[in-house]
């Protein structure tokens, strides 16, 4: 029986004790704890969303970075290709110029050779003429040394003239 008949003293102390407990906790403990808890939850949520934002930023930056890198690579390749083309063009031009010059030099040389040849021919001709004149003089001199010969000759020339 005593188990199910609540005693008045315990009811009194329970009301008083639980009242004090509730008062103290509701005044000094729960508001602080609940406030700090929700504040921390808010803080964590904010931090998480901030972290998400930063992560998005980071990925955006990274993609931009990647893009810049690719662009830079492309540009470098282009510059390199241009440079190669230019070099080839320059080399070709130089080669052509050298060829031209060589040709010019060769032509000049040919002309000079030709000229020298002509000069030599003229000189040889003159020499030959002089020699033939001298030879003719000597022959004539030798042939016209006697009178008969002179007369035959004159007579032939005369005949020739007559004939003409």
């Amino acid at each position: 029986m005593e188990l199910i008949t609540p005693s008045f003293g315990l009811i009194f102390w329970m009301l008083l004790g639980f009242g004090i407990l509730f008062f103290v906790l509701a005044k000094f403990a729960w508001p602080v704890i609940i406030k700090m808890l929700s504040e921390r939850e808010k803080h964590i949520e904010e931090q998480l969303s901030a972290a998400n934002l930063v992560r998005e930023d980071m990925s955006r930056l990274q993609s931009e970075h990647q893009r810049l890198l690719v662009e830079a690579k492309e540009e470098r390749d282009k510059i390199l290709a241009d440079a190669r083309k230019l070099r080839e063009k320059l080399a070709e031009e130089t080669k052509a110029k050298a060829n031209e010059e060589a040709n010019a030099i060769i032509a000049e040389a040919k002309q000079a050779i030709h000229f020298e040849k002509m000069k030599a021919m003229v000189e040889i001709k003159n020499e030959i003429a002089n020699l033939s004149i001298e030879i003719a003089e000597k022959v004539l001199r030798h042939e016209l040394s006697d009178k008969t010969q002179q007369e035959t000759l004159v007579s032939r020339w005369m005949q020739e003239v007559n004939l003409n």
């Binding site: 407990l21 906790l25 403990a29 700090m36 808890l37 504040e39 803080h43 964590i44």
Partner: peptide, 17 residues
């Protein structure tokens, strides 16, 4: 209980976030 929860409340206050 009062001791535990005042202590815990103090912990919350001293270590915000």
């Amino acid at each position: 209980m009062i001791w535990i929860f005042l202590y815990v409340a103090k912990q919350y206050k001293n270590r915000p976030n």
